[in-house]
């Protein structure tokens, strides 16, 4: 189910962000997130990305990274720098990996704006604020788990209520 969500999200972002996928057409990228159960092939074809768990066919490039590094790529982090810091492992055609990074960085989308269509402005803003604080963390997933736990056990201590405490 994770790859279904990933496929929907990527294609939605490419569509809404007016990103150009043509340079990646015909390429297959094996993509593994080390901290999440996601090992998939990105099949870039016909101006869209299919995310498939069928990894039996060979890929042009293998990319392994953590989810926080994946999010960093969206925010314009330099691939070469991440490679130098061993935060991302690439086997195969590095040019294809760079094309994917270029694509992710082309996506210019205001997540709060998109979210506000479904949740309203206030909730979208609060979630955006929360997301920014997680992004600043070294381990966003752990930070998210901690925050959810706080929210369930002691909601007034949650970051969502921080301003109200002050």
């Amino acid at each position: 189910m994770q790859h279904f969500v990933l496929e929907q999200a990527l294609n939605y972002l490419i569509d809404q962000g007016n990103a150009d996928l043509s340079a990646l057409n015909g390429k297959t990228l094996y993509f593994a997130l080390e901290d999440l159960p996601i090992n998939v092939n990105f099949v870039c074809t016909n101006d869209r990305i299919f995310v498939t768990t069928d990894t039996s066919a060979g890929a042009d490039v293998d990319i392994k990274l953590k989810s926080s590094v994946f999010l960093a790529l969206f925010q314009g982090e330099d691939l070469t720098e991440l490679l130098r810091q061993d935060k991302i492992v690439i086997h195969g055609d590095v040019k294809t990996a760079q094309l994917l990074v270029d694509l992710l960085q082309q996506i210019d989308i205001d997540f709060e704006e998109v979210l506000s269509k479904y949740t309203g402005d206030i909730v979208a803003h609060q979630i955006g604020k929360l997301a920014k604080s997680f992004k600043a963390s070294d381990n966003p997933l752990e930070a998210l788990k901690d925050e959810l736990t706080t929210l369930l056990i002691a909601p007034t201590k949650s970051k969502l209520f921080k301003n109200k405490d002050a």
């Binding site: 189910m1 279904f4 092939n41 099949v43 299919f50 498939t52 768990t53 069928d54 066919a57």
Partner: peptide, 12 residues
């Protein structure tokens, strides 16, 4: 499906 010539096939 794969024998018919498709490059990838998965099911849910």
């Amino acid at each position: 499906v794969l024998d018919a010539g498709f490059g990838f096939c998965e099911y849910h």
